[in-house]
Design a protein around this nucleic acid. Structure first.
Lengths: 347, 347
DNA sequence: TTGAAAGCGCTACCAT
DNA sequence: ATGGTAGCGCTTTCAA
């Protein structure tokens, strides 16, 4: 039953060559006669030889693994689609290049240190892809000190190169302009937590529009991602400024709650209120009205991050890779009255 | 900047002992004097010594990695919460026991073979946790042939031991009984694809209730998970049997579509129709009405699967672990009219 | 083009 | 309780 594992040594004996020669064939290196090469390849195939990656790793100091650090505790990062999709994109990409992915996340929200230490311990990975959120200077220092190649997903104030991000500002502009083009003026923008660079950029995009189109009764407010407080925010707006004629959600996480809150406030979407959201979840298109939203190119983000990392790993030069900012896509639904013939009925 | 990596050899030299002794300290093995042990521990700490896991792996033929095989292509397995939550539970558990998790999924739905081969290639993992769905006999054979310890999540017709599952049948009974207790009689049960054991079990649970409570106008139908065809199913029921007074969804994946379909059919939940679903998604509780549903103990499934696997890995005896069937929890919402004072208004 | 041998950093066994 | 040494399975010089 238990098949005896065959090693490079056996292959060498059978082929009547040295281990070194077999190794060269295995790694497609020059320095082996064509006849020998083919003969050895055949023998390897016949024997069903699979090189021991651990041993290869020890000898060549590469592991064939990359690490992916999601800077949030599991219960949190699973509440939306962002991280899982990114993970799958990276895993997919890695598999194609014969890499494996080691996932590392903090056990407790906020304690990212474990995640770094755990995965870096013992040289298990050749490089790292890291979600830039919450990355502290201390951790950044630690990474440099460990001399491990890494790529960030998302901007970071102290990192100029080797990162991928989406065009938050541009996407927010196109979303807001769309909402405005549908007739809305009193827009409530519910953004994520202040300290995220992505949130700042989305706010900038929103403010660009407010200024350009001269909208006086807009408002920006903040909610946590994990524990949305949407109800109060909408209520507050109504108290101070009356009913809004549009709400833009700064993240997909808020959508369900916003819709529920609107029901409570007797605000019908899209008749009384336009609604649009950053992020695109699969079910947005299945709802009625379908939610107008911004789809992030997460697949591309994963692909780009991975190939950047491979470049860093390959070139021992470690020449910094220029940042990549990827565009998002506006997905028009019906939640801003896109398919209603009647003009927007202002309150 | 680049810190020179400390090895066991340096530690040994500084401590004036042999590598073997240091190794014993490192692995908490007996055979070292207390004084020496403490002294060596201190030196290791001072030097910030981190053993090279690859080398350890090569010498001891263990890797400290376990593999998790999700038998679906990424776009699919991310469409619900099940796999991501399971993944996170396993990762969490693994981290606590100083293990890392290698994720492997098929690139193309259905082609699970890659996933197995890729992760088993080159002895990268000490054991495997595998989603039992779609696991073929050929693959099962391959696994045995590779002599790698593995644990299944979910039942499999040819596996008697070393698996964890939830009590699908029992959970379905409690869900159905709840729906019935709220007054429903004409129940449409929308189940997943026929060939899943879990679907079969849920159907059994449903049928148990149909028999016990003598309900004539029930119906069981099937939808794919990835491409739900809910609309037609509901339409068909109405054509043949008139409007149902309850719909039970066999999986969380169908919920949004069912709700939308009901809107179209002018069936108000819960006034005209009771609704309940297997699976619990976070947003079920945020909707109005809140969806009555069955929460799977995914965290416990992950914990159990992992500890089973560790047992298999540790005991070279490979003594089979008895299967574990975990109970689910009924979460009462409002979608079956739980909080309405008026009696159920039958059409 | 090829072989021989010296590691990679650790574990494991056999002496002492 | 300790040291010495032979691997683990491969890569990587350096000679030939």
């Amino acid at each position: 039953m238990k098949q005896k594992k065959i090693t490079i040594k056996e292959v060498a004996q059978i082929a009547n060559v040295s281990k070194g020669t077999v190794s060269r064939v295995l790694n497609n290196e020059a320095g082996v006669g064509d006849a020998n090469r083919e003969r050895i390849q055949k023998i390897m195939k016949d024997l069903n030889f699979e090189p021991n990656e651990i041993a290869r790793g020890l000898a060549s100091r590469r592991t064939g693994n990359i690490g992916f650090i999601i800077p949030h505790e599991a219960g949190y990062y699973l509440s939306n689609n962002y991280w899982p999709i990114l993970l799958s994109a990276i895993t997919k990409q890695a598999a194609q290049k014969e890499y494996h992915v080691l996932l590392s996340t903090p056990q407790v929200e906020g304690k990212i240190d474990d995640a770094y230490k755990r995965i870096l311990k013992g040289k298990r990975v050749d490089g790292l892809i890291i979600g830039s959120e919450l990355l502290s200077l201390k951790q950044l220092d630690f990474l440099h000190h460990q001399a491990v190649p890494f790529v960030l997903v998302g901007k970071h104030s102290h990192v100029q190169n080797n990162f991928v991000d989406i065009d938050n500002r541009g996407a927010m502009i196109s979303l807001t302009e769309h909402v405005i083009s549908m007739g809305a003026k009193k827009i409530l923008f519910i953004a994520g937590p202040r300290d995220y660079p992505s949130v700042q950029e989305r706010i900038q995009g929103f403010e660009d529009c407010v200024e350009k189109y001269q909208l006086p009764h807009t408002q920006i407010c903040h909610s946590y991602y994990d524990v949305p407080i949407v109800d109060n925010l909408i209520h507050d707006y109504i108290i101070t400024k009356g009913k809004p004629d549009a709400i833009i959600s700064g993240a997909g996480d808020f959508v369900i709650q916003i819709i529920e809150a609107c029901k409570k406030q007797k605000l019908r979407i899209p008749q009384d209120l336009h609604f649009a959201s950053f992020d695109f979840f699969k079910y947005f298109s299945m709802m009625s009205p379908a939610i107008t939203s911004i789809a992030q190119p997460l697949e591309e983000v994963g692909i780009t991050a991975f190939s950047m990392l491979i470049n860093l790993i390959k070139k021992s030069s470690q020449s910094p890779q220029p940042p990549q900012i990827l565009p998002c896509r506006l997905i028009k639904g019906e939640s801003c009255g896109e398919n209603s013939s009647e003009p927007f009925n202002k309150p």
